[in-house]
Design a protein around this nucleic acid. Structure first.
Lengths: 120, 120
DNA sequence: ATAAGTTCAAGGGGTTCA
DNA sequence: TGAACCCCTTGAACTTAT
């Protein structure tokens, strides 16, 4: 139908109108905010059913667990620099350098419910 | 190395198409701008991991700290030879350190994640 | 011709508040 | 919860300098 090149782009999670790429997936403002908040809280969500609730524009609010799951399935994730091979601390000798690198509590990651990522 | 004009010249930092030499290294427009801006700001970037993130065309935005590191490794520098301008690699002093590092001179500066926007 | 600097629209993450 | 807004970073295109 939409023949225009700037045809409506729909949210990869709920199908609503997408506003752009958010956390690596084309999503609407709603799912963008939902994902940000949820990941930040890092709480565990549980689907009261079988983890297969439908997630569309009208029902997306009904089951956060399934919505989050769909977000992840859509490829959403906090920006995690891809940790290449196993990190080889180049500066192992420099006390100063290593000290901060390793003891830093910011050393947590991977899509995880990590609190703060590489962000402002 | 690449002295042939027909050969595709790729950015020494991210592999994207290079547009020429910028700050003494063959780089793309993106890394050129990134380097200029970053050095100018002179803020400390901190990698949430271990300063070993992959830096390619698609991921270069994810970890500014590692991107800057790779710029330096590629030989980029402001024309002013005065070392006071750019960060002083903690590892440069140690031969061993440099030797073990998979790339070359890795450093890690930490002016604290104060207000920096280490973020893509 | 090259490389350094400048401009500016787009991208995208965070915050606010109804 | 999500629309609206804010603001920083990017990078392509352009201008200036050598």
């Amino acid at each position: 139908m939409a023949s225009r090149e700037d045809e409506v782009r729909s949210c990869a999670v709920c199908g609503d109108r997408a506003t752009g790429y958010h956390f690596h997936a084309l999503t609407c403002e709603g799912c963008k905010g939902f994902f940000r908040r949820t990941v930040k809280k890092g709480i565990g969500l549980t689907c009261p059913f079988e983890q297969c609730c439908e997630v569309n524009k009208n029902q997306r609010r009904h089951c956060p667990a399934c919505r989050l799951q769909k977000c992840l399935d859509a490829g959403m994730r906090k920006d995690t620099p891809s940790p290449s091979v196993h990190p080889q601390p180049a500066c192992t000798l420099s006390t100063t350098c290593v000290a901060t690198a390793h003891t830093s509590s910011r050393y947590q990651h991977f899509h995880g419910p990590a609190s703060d990522q590489v962000h402002q």
